[in-house]
Design a protein around this nucleic acid. Structure first.
Lengths: 245, 245
DNA sequence: AATCATTGTGTAAATTTTACACGTTTTCTC
DNA sequence: GAGAAAACGTGTAAAATTTACACAATGATT
């Protein structure tokens, strides 16, 4: 009730820290994680109920103050681990938000991270039962400027997923092409042609054929594939994509 | 000599502030501007000689601590204005660097901004004669982690310029297609076909035909064009670019 | 008047993207 | 176990985009 679980931690001294920041006229630094998951063919985001008094009951991103001795990325990993128990996840810095009055208690600059996790392989620590997966598209009101942060990360993801192989982090290690296509369709909110989609991915030569098939589907099972990160790394990047705007 | 002009300001109390940060175990926040210019068909970056003792004589980005009452963008604008006298410039946040020991005096998290200015239209305040334009490709050693920041911003620019109309900020309002092509070739470090380049830009329908021509060129002068930002703004953005990685 | 340097322009070939349909495989139900 | 339902897996032709490439026109310089 004293400290918001996003902007601050569950450490007992957060309120104190914010007070101190306020008093000293010093700027606080936090990280906020936009944790995306993919479930039931929908893009979800992991949120927590804010207990910060100005925003009681509103949804908030998972975040925390950055410790003095830890790098920003480390801080984001820590938040992620504390909340989800996962540490082997995709995590990338997206943007820093630092408007003067974005936090009501003190000046806090927050570095937003985007994280992608595979919802299946992971049981959220339900100690904290204020934690919930939300459909990304069905969110309006949020605590602080977190809606803006979420929107920024979502747009970032939409673009990023078309140019980098991050989408696979949202899927099981072995996945069918249908799942992959559903993922792209859900995130980009478009309908894609199945044959062209397959053609595209096969032509990249980065999908490895496992010899397994889907199970528990009520129809002909599809082949399962695995993304070959090594091969991807070795690929040379072109610097010329063509001008287009 | 006491305070570095990039990480800190020429305000007299910077050393004090850093000391205080250090003592309190509080994290400082700065902005650093990577100011790009285009001159003699080369991409340049505006740097200053560091007077911070650990990095004496090394080149440093232009930066400063963020004031309590100003937004991050404002802080970046302030730095830019203080150093170049310009305020109507392209400025965009790129990435935040926050490694624990990136600054020797205290923990300072810095938000890197990329700025693009038209070198012609602007006389650098030469009060500060430690300020110089450097070829981007001919830089190795820099103060702090500024080389890393510069590299990040350069790569960012290479990508960005192909997808957004920022390049024009590096040119005069009226420019020839040759200048524009030189710009792209210099930044991307590629050779482009002149006819295809022209075709591409004309097909976007965003270049306005001024009825003027180059002057002072020792050959047939080219037509001058102007970029139509309004038209660009109104254009609808597609969300599907095609998967490619 | 001749030379030099650069502008401005079009077309054909190659590549990439798009649109589109049917036989196959497995599960489920009766 | 026969038939229906659902999704899998596959290829080709048309359209659009990208690439490669050459020559006449213009203005400046001598």
């Amino acid at each position: 009730m004293l400290a918001d679980t996003s902007e601050t931690s569950s450490r007992p001294n957060v309120k104190t820290i914010l007070k101190q920041l306020e008093g000293d006229g010093v700027i606080g630094i936090s990280v906020d994680c936009v944790i995306f998951g993919f479930d039931e063919s929908e893009l979800k985001v992991l949120l927590i109920k804010s207990d910060f008094k100005n925003y009681e009951g509103k949804w908030s991103l998972l975040g925390n103050l950055v410790n003095n001795h830890e790098d920003l990325d480390q801080a984001a990993y820590r938040v992620l681990k504390e909340r989800t128990g996962l540490d082997d996840v995709y995590l990338e810095q997206v943007k820093t938000f630092g408007e003067v009055f974005r936090h009501p208690a003190a000046r806090v600059v927050t570095i937003a991270y985007c994280s992608l996790i595979n919802v299946q392989h992971h049981e959220i620590k339900k100690l904290d039962n204020e934690l919930h997966w939300h459909r990304v598209t069905a969110l309006s009101d949020m605590a602080f400027d977190h809606k803006k942060i979420l929107d920024t990360c979502y747009v970032w993801l939409q673009k990023r997923i078309q140019e980098h192989p991050l989408g696979f982090s949202l899927l099981p290690k072995k996945f069918s092409l249908r799942e992959l296509q559903n993922l792209y369709e859900a995130i980009l909110n478009v309908k894609l042609d199945r044959r062209n989609f397959r053609k595209k991915f096969f032509s990249m030569n980065l999908l490895e054929d496992t010899d397994e098939y889907e199970s528990d589907v009520p129809h002909r099972p599809g082949k399962l594939y695995r993304f070959n990160y090594e091969k991807y790394q070795k690929k040379e990047r072109k610097k010329w994509f063509g001008i287009d705007f």
